[in-house]
Design a protein around this nucleic acid. Structure first.
Lengths: 232, 232
DNA sequence: AATCTGTTCGTACGCTGTACGAGTCGACTG
DNA sequence: CAGTCGACTCGTACAGCGTACGAACAGATT
């Protein structure tokens, strides 16, 4: 963890002289930059990524990054998109019948991706949609359309399902990072107001929730509520 | 818009001397600070809020803010919560029957609040739940519970509905801020990959969506899919 | 040998959040 | 009246941020 801490060296050592290529870093590339950015944010959250740290991590100078990348925002976009890759239903054949399974599989993978990198949830609301997100949306559209949803309901259905994933992930990523939220909600008594949140406490809503189960169950409610053209 | 631009004055005028109380600002208070923070972010987004600008806006010194407030994060929390206030169903009587209407009213108000202050959507995923959010959750819990949802389904139902609002709002706030997203999604042809997103284009998913309608419709799907104990 | 093109990087600038300590002012106490 | 205390304000300073600018270097081409 602290293998790089050299005591009393110059401020940022990096690329020492010419003949002494000690660590022999591979050349900078967009892929390496993005991957390092993801690692930094996995380790330290959104604030864990600074251009200087990123450069140090790659053994390069800060401004070298800017030849490959326009801005830090650019790095964020690329990192977010790189984390959301999805290779669709491996055999396109099986999706003939089991549209529900296809949808659920893709959404749970999506959710898993974002929970593996909790910073992505906080990033999603403020970045444009990258290629991988669009690909997932496209897959969702195609599957739902084939499942026989009335055309006039299709868009609303897609958005509803999308929203379910977004909302669930965003919420959980938030809670996981500071579970003070739950404690605050259930333990703190506002005292000034006199009343707190009895129903929430009663249902143990914020406490011992099985998030995965709730996600699946809620998705079930949603899919059950969708109006299909043909009943099967 | 530019009424405050005084040419060649000192860097930040603020509270000139003792006898010349020109603008006679009311004293600093937490309420004033929070309100000013909301105004700044309404005008300039998340980045529009800096402690220095906030102080200027209030006619005070920067560090004076820190007597009322612990940190900038504190300001963000307070601003977010202040924007999500909700005075429940005015007459508690009417909610006896129309639980569906009560839920929809509260959620649409919630969504409207967040869309009125688009920065709030980007903030929500990374801040803990404030009192007003908890109050809304509590109301939702109570209403749903009274509507006759099976106890074992209650939590999943609450989360599903919550997620719907969160997802829809977060997505829309994102899109509204840069509608380049839609153009990029539908116009840009990835060329490298060869294929783009035909189904999305076909359904005009990202183009001419009636967001309010889709939100309502999707909420309908969700509520229709909820398993009620008693059918009515 | 000269030039060009792709790539690296040191320095510097303006901006951020905030720690620290000095200052002001009204009220209360001897 | 002097003294002192607490609430409140604020100037200065500092470390860290993103990045504009331009100098430097490598290898290939002329």
């Amino acid at each position: 963890m602290a293998t790089r801490t050299s005591s009393a060296g110059p401020k940022r050592p990096q690329r020492t002289g010419k003949s002494l290529q000690s660590t022999q870093e591979p050349p900078l590339s967009l892929e390496r930059i993005v991957q390092a950015a993801v690692e930094l944010m996995d380790a330290g959250g959104l604030d864990g990524l600074t251009m200087r740290r990123l450069a140090d991590h790659l053994g390069s100078g800060v401004m070298s990054l800017y030849w490959h990348v326009d801005s830090k925002e650019d790095v964020l976009d690329l990192a977010l998109d790189s984390v959301l890759e999805y290779q669709g239903p491996t055999s396109a054949s099986r999706s003939r019948e089991d549209w529900r399974g296809d949808v659920i599989r893709m959404l749970e993978d999506w959710r898993a991706c974002m929970l593996r990198h909790p910073w992505s949830a906080a990033l999603l609301p403020r970045r444009a949609l990258g290629a991988n997100i669009l690909a997932r949306l496209e897959l969702l559209s195609r599957t739902l359309s084939r499942a026989g949803i009335a055309d006039e309901d299709l868009n609303a259905a897609i958005w509803s399902i999308w929203n379910h994933v977004m909302g669930a992930t965003v919420t959980l990523a938030n809670f996981d990072r500071s579970d003070d939220a739950r404690k605050a909600a259930t333990q703190r008594r506002p005292e000034g107001t006199g009343g707190d949140y009895p129903t929430i406490e009663g249902s143990r809503l914020l406490l011992d929730e099985d998030w995965d189960g709730a996600f699946r169950k809620g998705l079930g409610f949603l899919l059950d509520g969708l109006p299909l053209k043909k009943v099967d």
